[in-house]
Amino acid sequence: MFKKAKFWAIILVMLMMVSIIAGCTGQKQEPPKEEPKTGQQAAEPENQEVILATTTSTFDSGLLDVLQPEFEKQTGYKLTIVSVGSGAAIAMAERGEADVLLVHSPADEIRIADAGAAINRQLVMHNDFIVIGPADDPAGIKGKPTGEAFKAIAGSKSLFISRGDESGTHKKELGIWKKAGIEPSGDWYRQTGTGMGGTINVAAEKGGYTLTDRATYLSLKKNMDLVILIEGDKDLLNIYHVMQVNPEKFEKVNAEGGKAFEDFMLSQETQEIIGTFGVDKFGSPLFFPDAGKNEEELTK
């Protein structure tokens, strides 16, 4: 008798769980009723969910907070932003777990495009990397070329804070060390394993040097006294591309949604938003729109 009762109790609990979960997902799939129909393409898309895998810099700088509602209003899609390092974003694309990418790790981008995981790679915008550090500049790097500066930091064993998370910024940093012929290790070289914002906070707290994109630095500047020591070096260009995850390789990818986001990012209107974003707050734009240009034009 008891066994039977227990069985039914378990069934009951399971039913409750299923109904609760179903209730939650049901809510999600309801089409947004108050959807304003003023956008250019107000047609209701079939699969509304679009997953964007992107770097922490586009998110932490606040740019996507501006672009997301604009995209959703114009197209009727719902954008889920997965904000991780470029390394993780690329890995998600390789598994078909995202629909579209906005990243800045050129070598990896070309690698997955060649492997067929991503298609339609387009230049969206750029900004630049900068080396920031304490104002008294213990390693004396101010104004030096980037490679020389990194050598000076390693030579004087001044504290350097690295992202250490396989992100685009981390890859860039490793590239500079490699070019300078240095294998960074030891007490002076610390890896945070977190996003750009977190890493800058650590550098500020410990008084260390770090490599960052300009956008994240400008948006965090108000809290700290790290200053820009190196900027404007050609090696320090930070280029963002948008790419679609290949729907032919991964059947669950939302092909139309990914395409819609890519088109949105490249549209003139969006490019204007990108070009003016941050001017009111920081006195200069955080990103420079580049749709339609090619990479060689930028790096020369």
Binding site: M17, I20, I21, C24, T25, K28, E49, I51, T80, V82, R95, G96, E97, F250, K252
Partner: peptide, 24 residues
Amino acid sequence: LWRNGPLGFFNLMYTPAAMIIAQA
């Protein structure tokens, strides 16, 4: 819960339901 994962067909990733499951 990843869409290519064993329970991907429920389409729960990035929803409150997924968070409820995790917290439960």
